[in-house]
Amino acid sequence: MGDFLVTCLQAATPIWLAALAGMFAQRSGILHLGLEGLMLSGAFAATATAIKTGSIMLAIGVAVAVNLALSLLFWLLVTRFKANVLIVGLGLSLTAAGATGYALVAFFGTEAAIQSPVGLPRPLSGVGGPLGNLSVLTFAAIALTWLSWWTIRRTRAGLKLSACGSDPFAARSAGVPVDRYRLAALQVGGLLCALAGTELSLAQVQSFSDNIAQGRGYLAFAAVLLGGIAPVGVSVAALFFGSAAAFGIQSQLDFNGALPPQFVLMLPYVVTIVAISATALVKRRRGEGPAVILERTL
């Protein structure tokens, strides 16, 4: 049982961190479909830096710097050039998928996975047991969830951020610099997605392979919608999706490979569709309208 719970946390951590990133963006009024691309960029930057330097701190720093630059570009396209936020987000994810695959060949001369000599610290490795396999970013996700809740619910900046998403015109009339708050939200999201990508590539496998995210960014986006754009709800939704992934892995082990691997891979996404459909049905019956929040005019 303990091993399964740890597997759930390991599977959920990258989705969890990316979902918090999407929550901040959506709180500011931006639907962020670029989470997948930011996770891939962060994962490649972290792994490549770790291979070249052998420093885990420098690897995280480079991953954060890359994602901050991409988040700034995202903000410029959406706010300054008035590009459609959904198209920009999808473009970012698709471009990152192709660019990281190309960079893998260009910098390392291979299409196979590249191995890192270092990995993320494991605070409880000396304790023993299954908890020793958890990386430091799993514990960081718990702390960041509380910090996100406190920022949104207990600070003026958090309240202003929520106002930018709920009614940007009223926020502007009250003197709130909406575009700056959206930039800040995207930058925070870039940092969180860099951590999510680092967790993917340097926590357990300590390697990067082409398309390592495998749709986790889209699961994170679904967790934002399912969690009601609230830190605790988003975190619970991310843990739910992580549990679905862990259940698929555990089922494959229990049945000694008798289950088709395609079933294991598709299970989290089937659960996502069922969960969002059920949420939409409940809201429709309550008269709350569609479950998906539509983009507001910038």
Rank of each mutant, 00 (worst) to 15 (best):
G215K: 08
L192K: 08
K160I: 01
V188W: 11
G175S: 05
A194D: 14
F208A: 11
E199Q: 15
R216F: 01
L202D: 08
G217N: 10
Q214I: 05
A184Q: 09
D179G: 14
V205A: 15
R182C: 04
I212E: 03
L200E: 15
I212C: 05
A174W: 00
Y218Q: 02
V176N: 05
G189T: 08
A194F: 10
V205I: 15
L183E: 10
A184F: 14
V188M: 12
L192F: 06
D179I: 03
A213G: 10
R182S: 05
K160D: 11
S209P: 05
Q214T: 09
D167Q: 06
S201W: 03
A184I: 13
Y181G: 08
L200Y: 13
F221R: 08
L192A: 07
K160L: 04
V176M: 08
Q214R: 12
G165Y: 01
S207V: 08
T198N: 11
A170Q: 02
V205P: 03
F169N: 02
C193F: 06
F221C: 12
L202M: 07
R182Y: 04
V188F: 11
A213P: 08
A174G: 05
Q214L: 13
G217S: 10
C164D: 01
A213N: 10
T198Q: 11
F169L: 02
T198W: 07
C193S: 11
G217C: 09
V176F: 04
G189K: 05
A171S: 02
A196W: 03
V188E: 04
V178A: 09
S209M: 14
F208I: 10
Q204G: 11
G217D: 07
V205Q: 15
S207H: 10
G175M: 03
A220Y: 02
G190D: 11
P177D: 09
